[in-house]
């Protein structure tokens, strides 16, 4: 396995609460892996630590063999790790196209020659237009985020993250508020990007979708890594059944 992301003993404590406890795992290059766990399992804190929205107390994070755990968040983004948020976040005073273009400018020009998903080639305007077309946002190009539907806002956020031309995209609860059809519509778009070389780490508690979509899953509980494996292995894991699926009885 050629890992693009290597997490080693990542820990974070907030006062008396140990939000993330010595989590270690690898994400294979080009894969679509999932991180699941019940509410309060520490998933979002974990994402915040990897993307450097929070600094870990201990542990290390390597992106493409390069340590990123001591870098500020903007350098992590420029190194090729983009993320989206549990609660949709866009610049609310900027139009959809400005939101995408701005990230493109700050993230730097597309620099990863081995990638080939939409929005990587050409000038900023062409890349922005291509990303908007890919996510069916062209009609909303001048709209403010407040004027968009939840579906379009989520698509715009993913397009903005992809504008950084990342090697790895972490999506925090991307399917929240989505119907099954809408969730799979977004997955179809993400799979196109995966074919173009993008690695993705999905964080969600929509078990049904996650087990169906992800090639490999990690399960967190009380801040620690409880289990990992393919969907079949996770489904069959008694510990996971006990703490997450609640099907023990």
């Amino acid at each position: 396995m050629d890992p693009i992301l290597e997490i080693r003993d990542l820990s974070k404590r907030f006062g008396g609460v140990e939000a993330v406890k010595a989590v270690s795992f690898d994400v294979p290059r080009g894969s679509l892996v999932g991180l699941i766990g019940p509410n309060g399992a520490g998933k979002t804190t974990f994402v915040n630590l990897v993307s450097k929205h929070e600094s870990p107390d201990t542990g290390s994070v390597l992106l493409d063999k390069r340590p990123i755990h001591r870098l500020p968040s903007f350098k992590v983004a420029r190194a090729g790790l983009a993320r989206t948020y549990q609660k949709n976040r866009l610049f609310f005073e900027e139009s959809v196209s400005e939101n995408i273009r701005t990230a493109m400018i700050w993230g730097g020009a597309a620099k990863h020659q081995d990638l080939s998903y939409p929005g990587l080639k050409g000038k900023e305007e062409e890349r922005t237009a291509e990303l908007m077309e890919f996510f069916a946002l062209t009609a909303q190009r001048d709209a403010l985020p407040s004027g968009l539907s939840h579906l379009h806002r989520r698509r715009a956020e993913v397009a903005q993250a992809l504008a950084l031309a990342p090697k790895l995209l972490m999506l925090d609860e991307p399917f929240a508020g989505f119907s099954r059809e809408e969730a799979f519509d977004l997955i179809d778009h993400l799979k196109v990007c995966q074919k173009g070389g993008l690695t993705m780490l999905l964080i969600d508690h929509n078990m049904e979708v996650m087990l169906e979509v992800c090639e490999y899953l990690f399960v967190m509980h009380h801040g620690a890594l409880l289990a990992s494996g393919t969907s079949a292995e996770v489904r069959a894991n008694p510990e996971v059944i006990n703490v997450y699926l609640g099907a023990e009885t």
């Binding site: 993307s51 500020p72 968040s73 903007f74 993230g107």
Partner: peptide, 25 residues
């Protein structure tokens, strides 16, 4: 110019600006 865009982004959501590659500090 780009400084104005950066300042507006910081006011709107500085964590997001950092996550999109802006050297906020």
């Amino acid at each position: 110019g780009h400084v104005g865009r950066a300042l507006n982004a910081i006011r709107q959501d500085e964590d997001l600006a950092g996550a999109r590659g802006l050297d906020v500090l």
